[in-house]
């Protein structure tokens, strides 16, 4: 039985989604982490809402990057350990399709969840409602890009002991443009200036990683697995 690349892509996505909804605590943990980190900042600073509002986009974005990194560690690990990855590659599908599907599924599960809860966090940090649309759109683009970058990092660190620290060390420097443009877009939306430039740049980064990262992540897996 042979299936086309697109069909395989969607089948793998479905499988990943089903697996992750079977264990909801794994879905919730990054979200709770996101909430905890954003709670830490107001507690660590003195509670001046104006000061907090100035820092809000940065705090929100740093927390989002960290919490979405948390779940990246396990992106390929489980499937590499129990041999699923090998089976999938033996199925005759190119590894790139499977890697892409797993990454997109990761984003659908963690990235979208972050986007959904971000208004709650945004309200708590004093971000005005008028900036929510930009904030959510930038988060959606940014987390997708981060999932791609993280897929490369996760592929590279599979065989490594305590790979999660190394994963952050590798991925965070590469993710700095996301932080700059993501927080920048939210910041500009709050001050009422044009957000188009920053959002276009985020979108460009997203398209760029979507086209190149699948191949890089596949190459990474070929190096660390087998």
């Amino acid at each position: 039985m042979s299936v086309g690349a697109w069909e395989a892509f969607f089948l793998v996505i479905l499988r990943e989604m089903r697996l992750s909804f079977r264990r909801p605590e794994q879905l919730l943990q990054p979200l709770v982490f996101f909430l905890i980190v954003t709670t830490l900042f107001p507690l660590g600073l003195n509670l001046q809402l104006s000061l907090l509002r100035d820092m809000a986009p940065g705090v929100l974005w740093v927390a989002a990057l960290l919490s979405s990194l948390l779940s990246l560690d396990s992106l390929f690990k489980g499937d590499a350990d129990d041999g699923t990855l090998e089976q999938l590659t033996l199925s005759g599908q190119s590894l790139t399709v499977i890697v892409a599907a797993k990454t997109v599924a990761h984003w659908l599960v963690t990235g979208i969840a972050l986007v959904v809860v971000s208004p709650v966090v945004g309200t708590a940090l004093g971000i005005p409602t008028s900036a929510f649309a930009t904030m959510m759109l930038s988060l959606a683009l940014g987390t997708l890009t981060l999932s791609w970058l993280g897929a490369i990092g996760a592929g590279l660190t599979i065989g490594v002991r305590r790979g999660n620290v190394l994963l952050s060390l590798i991925v965070l420097p590469l993710a700095m443009p996301l932080l700059i443009f993501g927080a920048g877009a939210t910041d500009r939306a709050m001050s009422g200036t044009s957000v188009a430039g920053a959002l276009y740049f985020l979108a460009a980064l997203c398209v760029f990683t979507c086209t190149l990262a699948p191949f890089a992540a596949t190459a990474a897996l070929r190096i660390t697995v087998e």
Binding site: I152, I170, P177, F201, I223
Partner: peptide
Amino acid sequence: AAALLAIVGAVNIPIIHYSVVW
């Protein structure tokens, strides 16, 4: 693995630089 990461980083360096300038 390090070689692949170095290549990925090299592709990113101009992006990082221009985003920092912006």
